[in-house]
Design a protein around this nucleic acid. Structure first.
Length: 919
RNA sequence: AGGAGCGUAGCUCAGCUGGUUAGAGCGCCGCCUCGACAAGGCGGAGGUCCUCGGUUCAAUUCCGAGCGUUCCUACCA
């Protein structure tokens, strides 16, 4: 075998798996299904995706090997706003506006774009090794899913759960569409607080002072509010102020919403441009004056002077004019949370418009109940609170978007503006008995992408038809997703699926932590701290990484800082670590923590681990090639029985960890078994036998058999986590050991077997390890190199110790490289020595010019001190009558045994020290 | 403001239903080119488990308060 170079085999194995259709459900066994959270067609794989999909792939591969009928359903969503934005930008580069093309032509362009560029994410998923069922891949805008969307919309409308209304919604003035609350991100920014004087009508030189962070909205004010119990203003309630610039009288109202302590205690009320004011406007029946066009320029409802100005131009003009009039009391610096559209980054405007909504309340109730009753279980459980809080305060969901790319709303209007909802125009006419003379035009808007995503688990399986797939694979078993998606998507899937399928979309929701950069910062394009998982698998030069992070930034001024940070963090770029190493890193960091700092050092560590396994396999093949590796019914020796038991134990730990989604525990168990037990001990322990020629072939072949079969089982055990290298190595295992299968993917997962537990073997090996480590410790601390042979005396050992020495002498000689090993008993000559205790037995390395007397005394002192500390603790516990009376007997007994052991050890150590000191 | 999480070795993190000599990886310090592996081997150092209380025979672990930190939700105009 060559050096470990993952890029040599990772790509080709994936192709072969896919060509051979290994990802398809087997058709046998218990159904186990997971629906992929649909990535955007526009999207590229980020670290969060790579993380989550790695976890899912291990679950899927684990279950497939367990014999389940396994489906990992692939699909993407159309990402309405994001995709339309990208294509619009491309057209802009050609000097074309979407309106030049018209709806039909524009959509053709989007589809073209999707065919050409939509596949990035699929390539990345393949590179990650994701064993998705590609053959049934779905897309939210394909015919089947569109049919499901229509069906759901129409049925909800028939039940009054979808309605149309004029409401204040979050409006993106660049994209010119409504967006949902969840697509708005508020960040604190520096701004100002302007204190404005509003003249009181009929009272010269009397003013009410209002404070605002958005002075331009004053043009749409329809009231000023004070607290009803505020003595300062009580007498003014019901009177009017004269709104400056607009020269309109507006009333002074009283409302408990007003905070008397804040600012002047007076608030300007602009019901058409603020959510709180909107509510207050409803309570007081205030008029709504909308002063903006859909691009946030000032409209004809404002004084002529400001019309057509952009909102920020208007702000400057308003301030200047008020200043001229002496109506600015003061201007203060102020930090405020500015809401920005997630996609465009522009400040979002509360905007009055006609929209479609889902009435969420009635749908939420069964969803809450499903989680309360445990039909759906969140892991970790505390995320259920997030879900409950959101669901119990759920607001109606604005589902219409003023876009072209998406599911067009199935509603038609006649010339008088009456609305007809149906699956198509013909049905609308039939349903409402409309003749052909009635002109119908379809609603121009499309549905929120999440509306179609909410139907994901069942629409992908063929609903509304009752397909065999739907029957077999729904409800799905697990949904793996980030906590930020619980409200967006998870909750909506639960609502819609219960409503239309009558069962939960999934039985378990595994909520992953969020992958951040090394400083705990959320990774984002704008911060330039994001990592592309492909760059970790395939490597990237520093310059390319810098270029990638600084291209097409929304805020180009960040480029310099991003470059500096990148050059500092990755001075040599990123090396190609391979998929297996990256995946193993993901499993290892998949703890219950909410944020997960991604540390490149760990990837390197796990790449080294892959290298270790690779080289161990190399050793196994070297030692077994061209030999008869059949078992020949020779009983395995104690070392072989030990490694089999260790492997068995690991299988047990890993299997249990997978049942509880503890990927970190599974990864740790595999890592420790392979490196600490198999490589560090077992492989070493095979060497004296496999290197020695005089031992009879049967024994050697038994050893070869265990070596190979243990490796083979280990590969199967690790395959869900390290899919590529395990396949590559497994293919080289002789068929006599691995069986005739074509791929490790379809082999059985190892089962743990209690009968393989072997306490004799584990005690024997523990003894060997103790003897070897003790000697190495003396060597290490005395700076005696491995090459220099030293004499060893086993002093005063039990019969068992003697038997073990006899049985394992060859092994010990190989591992310790002594000049000699001999057993002596009390009464025999006992030279002054460096000492290590193995239970009751003393392991002695006689003093010589190699061993420094002072160094040995220091070593003994350290050990004595350690034991004394333990002794003190044990004694104080046992000296406490409460402990002895109240603690369980086994705990007390354990403490007594411990104390006895310490005492015996201390006695020997002190005696040794005295003997040496006396020299 | 409300809610949630986190605080364990220099760094990144495990430690389940209380009893362990409190662990791992990386980093650090010694030694080692011995035929699987220097992307390695062997040995070692390093911790008031944030602070203060409480429950308990016993607290890193359970409870309360405080400090620090992160996130979510709602925002006072």
């Amino acid at each position: 075998m060559d050096k470990y170079q993952p890029q040599d085999f990772e790509g080709t194995w994936y192709e072969r798996w896919e060509e051979n259709n290994y990802f398809a459900p087997s058709g046998n066994g218990n159904p186990f299904s997971i629906a992929i959270p649909p990535p955007n067609v526009t999207g590229t794989l980020h670290m969060g995706h790579a993380f989550q999909h790695s976890l899912v792939d291990s679950l899927i591969r684990f279950r497939r090997m367990k014999g389940d009928n396994t489906l990992w359903q692939m699909g993407t969503d159309h990402a309405g706003i994001a995709t339309q934005l990208i294509v619009t930008e491309q057209l802009a580069a050609e000097g074309i506006k979407p309106s030049d093309l018209g709806r039909e032509e524009f959509l053709k362009r989007v589809w073209q774009w999707k065919e050409h560029s939509g596949g990035t994410i699929s390539k990345q998923l393949r590179r990650l090794g994701a064993s998705l069922h590609w053959e049934t891949e779905r897309f939210t805008l394909d015919d089947g899913l569109s049919r499901a969307v229509l069906e759901v919309f129409v049925r909800l409308h028939e039940e009054g759960l979808v309605y149309r209304g004029k409401r204040l919604v979050n409006w993106d003035p660049v994209l010119k569409t409504s967006i949902s609350d969840l697509e708005v991100e508020s960040e604190e920014e520096q701004g100002h607080m302007w204190h404005l004087r509003y003249p009181i009508a009929g009272e010269s030189n009397q003013f009410l002072v209002v404070a605002t962070t958005r002075p331009e909205t004053m043009l749409g004010d329809t009231a000023v509010a004070v607290h009803p119990d505020d003595e300062r203003y009580k007498s003014l309630v019901g009177k009017e102020v004269l709104l400056p610039l607009a020269d309109r009288p507006i009333t002074i109202i009283a409302d408990h919403y007003v905070d008397r302590e804040f600012g002047s205690g007076c608030v300007k009320i602009t019901p058409a441009h603020d959510f709180n004011d909107y509510d207050m406007g409803k309570r007081h029946d205030l008029p709504l004056i909308n002063i903006f066009n859909d691009d946030a320029s000032v409209n004809e409802n404002a004084p002529a002077k400001y019309q057509k100005m952009d909102r920020y131009e208007a702000r400057d003009a308003v301030i200047e004019d008020l200043q001229q009039l002496g109506l600015i009391e003061k201007i203060e610096d102020h930090t405020l949370a500015v809401p920005r559209g997630e996609k465009s980054g522009v400040v979002v405007e509360p905007y009055l418009s006609d929209q479609w909504f889902v009435k969420a309340g009635p749908l939420a109730e069964p969803a809450i109940k499903a989680v309360e009753d445990g039909e759906i279980e969140f892991i970790p459980k505390n995320y259920e609170n997030t879900f409950f809080v959101w669901m119990r305060n759920i607001q109606d969901w604005c589902i219409s978007r003023q876009q072209w790319w998406g599911h067009r709303i199935p509603a038609w209007y006649d010339e008088s503006g009456n609305v007809y909802v149906a699956r198509n125009e013909a049905e609308a006419r039939e349903k409402h008995k409309l003749g052909n003379d009635t002109v119908l035009t379809q609603d121009e808007d499309v549905l929120d992408t999440w509306f179609s995503s909410a139907l994901w688990t069942f629409s992908t399986l063929g609903w509304p038809d009752k397909t065999p797939d739907l029957e077999t694979f729904h409800s799905t078993d697990v949904m793996v997703t980030g906590h930020d998606i619980i409200t967006f998507w998870v909750s909506r899937m639960i609502m819609m699926t219960l409503k239309f399928v009558g069962e939960v979309p999934f039985k378990k929701v595994y909520v992953t932590g969020m992958v951040t950069d090394a400083d705990g910062q959320k990774q984002s394009k704008s911060k330039g701290n994001g990592l592309d998982p492909l760059d970790i698998m395939d490597g990237i030069s520093l310059d390319d990484l810098v270029a990638k992070r600084t291209e097409s930034l929304l805020q180009p001024r960040m480029a310099e800082r991003i470059e500096k940070n990148t050059r500092k963090e990755f001075p040599d770029g990123i090396r190609a670590y391979g998929t297996d190493a990256l995946r193993f890193t993901f499993y290892s960091i998949a703890t219950r923590s909410r944020t997960i700092r991604f540390d490149m050092n760990r990837v390197e560590g796990y790449r080294n681990f892959c290298n270790k396994l690779w080289n161990a396999a190399n050793y196994v093949f070297m030692k077994t090639e061209d030999h008869d590796v059949s078992n020949k019914n020779v009983a395995p020796d104690v070392i072989d029985r030990w490694i089999v038991a260790e492997l068995n134990h690991t299988v047990d730990v890993v299997s249990r960890a997978m049942e509880t989604f503890r990927f970190d525990i599974a990864a740790k168990a595999i890592y420790e078994f392979i490196w600490d037990e198999f490589c560090d001990w077992y492989v070493e322990l095979t060497k004296p036998i496999l290197n020695a020629e005089e031992i009879n072939d049967q024994v050697v072949n038994a050893k070869r058999f265990t070596l190979l079969s243990t490796l083979e089982q280990t590969l199967r055990l690790a395959h869900p986590f390290l899919p590529f290298m395990t396949e590559e190595i497994w293919q080289q295992i002789p068929e006599g050991i691995r069986g005739p299968g074509e791929t490790i993917m379809q082999q059985n997962y190892p089962l743990s077997d209690a009968s393989l537990i072997d306490s004799t073997a584990s005690k024997d090996v523990a003894w060997i390890k103790d003897v070897v480590t003790g000697t190495r410790n003396i060597r290490g601390e005395m700076d005696i190199s491995q090459g220099k042979p030293i004499p060893i005396i086993f002093f005063n050992g039990s019969d068992e110790d003697k038997a073990r020495l006899e049985e394992h002498q060859t092994l010990l000689e190989f591992l310790i490289r002594p000049k000699s090993i001999e057993s002596r008993v009390a009464g025999d000559d006992k030279p002054p020595s460096a000492t290590h205790l193995v239970g009751e037995m003393e392991l002695l390395v006689p003093l010589s010019d190699l061993i420094n007397k002072e160094a040995e005394i220091a070593r003994l002192d350290k050990e004595i001190e350690r034991k004394e500390k333990e002794k003190t603790r044990a004694e104080s516990k046992l000296g406490n009558s409460n402990f002895v009376d109240k603690a369980p007997d086994n705990v007390v007994q354990k403490e007594r045994d411990k104390l006895a052991d310490i005492d015996s050890a201390l006695e020997k150590l002190k005696k040794q020290k005295a003997e040496i000191s006396g020299l």
